[in-house]
Amino acid sequence: MRILSLCIFIAALAWALLPGNTATTWPLIAHFTAFPVVVGAGLGLIGVVGVLLRRFRPLLAAGVVLVIAGAGSFLPVQQPAVSDADDGGLVVLEWNTGDSVTPEALATLIRDVDPDIAVLPEYSGAAPAGYRSFVSSEMPVTVLVAEELGDYRAVEVPGSSEVTFGTVHVSTGRPGERTPDVIGLHTAPPLPGLMGRWHDDLGTIVSLAETHPDALIIGDLNAVPRHGVLARTDTHADAAAAAPLLGRGTWPTALPGWARSPIDHILIPHGWSVVDGGVRVLDTGGSDHAPVVAHIRRD
C-alpha cells in the first residue's frame, strides 16, 4: 500500500510539473517549476535510486517516471531559432538592477556590452550618454534605446495591458529590422499575498504577445516559460533559452549560476533568431539579478 501511495504521489508530481499545466502556478509547485535545473537534477537522482532498487516493480516504474520528469524539467518550452549569420541585428540587454545599481556602474556595463536596447527593471537613474530613456510611472522600469536607432517615442499602455511593477512600450511607428517595438516590464513575484497578481500578470504578458506579435518583450517576468499560460505563447520565444543549459539562471546571484532561476527574459517574435553563441548571462555584481545579453537578428 505504501508503494502504491508513493507511485500515485510521484505520478501527480510529474503531472503537476508539465509545461503549461495550471498546477505550475500553484504555491510551492510554482516555486519548484522556477528552478528547473535543481528540481530536474533532484528528481532524476531520486529516480535513478528507484530504478536501482528494482526489486519492487512499482518502485522501478516510479523511478522511471521521475527520471523522465527530471529530464523534462531541463527542456525549454519555446526554443528560439538560431542563426549562423552574425552580421547586423541588435544587441539587447536585460538587467533587473534591484534598485541598487548606480548610474556609474550601469555606464560601465553599457560600455562593455554596447547594447542597442536595454530594459532595466528597478532602475530610475540617469541614462548613459548616447541613449534615450523611457521610464514607467509605477515601480520603475527603464527602457534605453541607442540614439542611432532613430526617433523612438513612448506609446500609451492601457491599464489592462500593464503588469504590476511597470510596463513601458516604445516605438518609432515604423517597426523594422533595426527599429522593432519594445515592451519592457516587471511582473509581481509569486509570493504570499501576490499570487493572484502574478497569475494575472502572466495572462497580461500573453495578451501583449498576441496583440503585439512583432514587438520585443523584455524584462523580469518572475516566471519561466513553463509557468501556466506562458507555455502556450505561440508568437514569441525566449532568446535566453539559447544560452548554455547550466548558464541560463539569473536569480538570485547568491547561488551558483547553474542553480539560479531563469526569470529574466528577452522574448523575440517569430521571424527573429538568436545569433549562434550570442546569448550570455553575465556575472556583473551590484544586484541580486544577473544581466542577460542577446545578439538577435531579423531573418
Rank of each mutant, 00 (worst) to 15 (best):
L144T: 10
A188G: 15
G176D: 10
S160G: 10
L191Q: 12
P252W: 01
T211A: 14
H169K: 03
I263K: 06
R248C: 08
R174L: 12
V182N: 00
P256I: 01
P128T: 02
W251F: 15
L191W: 13
P269W: 08
L194V: 09
L208A: 05
A237P: 04
H265K: 08
R197W: 08
Y152P: 04
A231V: 09
A254R: 12
S137Q: 14
A231H: 11
V229P: 11
F165M: 00
L255H: 14
V224L: 03
S133P: 14
A241S: 13
P190L: 01
E162S: 10
S261C: 07
A231D: 11
H265T: 02
V182P: 00
A188N: 12
D151M: 11
F134G: 02
A242H: 11
Y131D: 02
H186K: 15
I205R: 04
H236C: 07
H169E: 03
V141K: 01
G176F: 08
G193F: 11
P269A: 08
D238L: 07
G228W: 06
L255G: 14
V229H: 08
G257Q: 14
L245V: 07
D151Q: 12
G247R: 13
R132N: 09
H212S: 07
E156Y: 14
L230S: 06
G159L: 15
A243E: 00
G173Q: 10
V170W: 08
A254V: 10
G257S: 12
R174A: 14
P140V: 03
I218G: 03
P225I: 00
L208E: 05
P262Y: 04
D201V: 00
E162K: 15
A243V: 01
V157N: 13
V135R: 14
V206T: 05
G173W: 12
T204S: 05
R178M: 10
D238Q: 09
H236E: 06
D220N: 11
S261Y: 04
D264R: 01
A241V: 12
I205V: 15
V168E: 02
P192L: 13
L267A: 10
V141P: 02
P262W: 05
H169R: 04
D201G: 00
W258G: 02
V141M: 02
L245C: 04
